[in-house]
Design a protein around this nucleic acid. Structure first.
Lengths: 112, 112
DNA sequence: TTCAATGGTTTAAAATATTAAACGTTAGAG
DNA sequence: CTCTAACGTTTAATATTTTAAACCATTGAA
């Protein structure tokens, strides 16, 4: 039973991450960032070119991706360089939840 | 490079699953189904009670969850019993993608 | 200090997703 | 056959997300 409260909490914690990751445009941004594995990262302008989104749209999606810890930025003057975060905290959380779910799904098979 | 096309494809394949899983209401349905690990499954009415959603809303979310293969139903007369699918295909796909991503993220650290 | 470059933010519009009400369908009881 | 229970579907309304246009702030160059 506290098993399920735990699960509810886990789901709650990855909700924003799932939503962030589910969007096609944001996936395009992520892939572009993965692709350009430059240490410096990419700027908004670079991403508007690569994804065919307007600058405000890119900015918006970057904000969402940053909020869930998927990307990070460092600024040099007025220039902002975005890159994928090296921390995989959220990804690990999600993996753990998926394992948790399949585990319970497995259990319920045997429980008649 | 085909690494990234592959990744793009993988993302595309789990998009709907991520969206399905990201929604709070659908999470509630999933948790309710996990909770009631009866072999028979639960009916729409049971789920409206448990989730405080209207019947059409539950019906709608169940449809989405079914489309991504998370749940299955078997009918007895006019009664439909929904339960979590025993196949973890989609979950496995997502796990694989997450591993793929962290792997590439790791690589890009060393790539100067 | 003035100007151009960079990019975040705000507001309003457009697109999409969610919900509810009304309706249709099917199965079984009487 | 008729009535009811169970539940999906369609349509219209509502809410939320996404986008674009216009605006603002900051940095650095001249």
């Amino acid at each position: 039973m506290s098993d399920l409260n735990q699960l509810k909490k886990e789901f709650d914690e990855v909700s924003d991450f799932l939503i962030a990751l589910g969007d096609e445009k944001r996936q395009a941004i992520i892939i572009t960032l993965l692709q350009a594995n430059s240490c410096k990262g990419l700027r908004v302008i670079d991403l508007t070119d690569a994804t065919e989104l307007s600058r405000p749209a890119v900015s918006h999606h970057l904000k969402i991706l940053k909020q869930v810890g998927l990307i990070e930025l460092h600024s040099e003057g007025t220039k902002n360089y975005y890159s994928l975060s090296h921390k995989t905290t959220e990804i690990d959380k999600l993996k753990k939840l998926l394992n948790h779910v399949t585990e319970i799904m497995g259990k319920s098979v045997e429980t008649k």
